[in-house]
């Protein structure tokens, strides 16, 4: 019965999705409103049924697996030791620092002198132990440095 219901809902959604994708001029406004009202009512009926429904036979196992997968994805995504995280984090930090240094350099230009410490400051942000991705990106810093050396 559960499968039949899902198939029915899926079929309905496919048909209404196709209707929703039609050009606005072709779409019937009254029909659109009627579908919206009916879908809302159906969702409401489903929510009521959910309150008393039994969990599916495989539900617990499926959800546990799903949670494990989600947790794994999150961990790999936000692992502070992952290469990607280090790269993004480093670039974010570098962007903020470089902005501050450029502003400082502009101020110095107005006063007619440039202090070498800015170049030294930039070099501080280039990690000697950076991973390959960061090092590749560092080529960009050579260009920025040459700009400062103008």
């Amino acid at each position: 019965m559960s499968n039949e219901i899902y198939e029915k809902v899926e079929k309905l959604c496919q048909k209404i999705d196709a209707f929703a994708e039609k050009d606005f001029s072709v779409k019937n406004e009254i029909k659109t409103e009627a579908y919206i009202a009916k879908i809302k009512k159906l969702i409401n009926m489903i929510e009521k049924a959910e309150a008393t429904a039994q969990p599916g036979i495989l539900e617990t196992e499926d959800e546990t697996n799903e949670n494990v997968i989600n947790k794994d994805v999150l961990e790999s995504k936000y692992n502070p030791y992952s290469e990607d995280f280090c790269y993004k984090d480093r670039l974010k930090q570098l962007n903020g620092n470089i902005y501050r240094l450029i502003q400082e350099l502009k101020e110095q230009d107005k006063e007619g002198y440039r202090n070498a410490y800015i170049i030294n400051e930039i070099e501080k942000y280039i990690p000697s132990t950076a991973n390959i991705k960061v090092r590749e990106k560092m080529n960009l810093w050579q260009k920025i440095k040459s700009f400062f050396k103008k």
């Binding site: 919206i36 969702i43 009926m45 489903i46 429904a53 599916g56 036979i57």
Partner: peptide, 24 residues
Amino acid sequence: ELKQADKKTLKKSKKILQETLTKL
């Protein structure tokens, strides 16, 4: 018939209906 469905099916059904509703 909705009462005879299990929670997981209802949850899945609700999800696709909400997506369709958003499109509309």
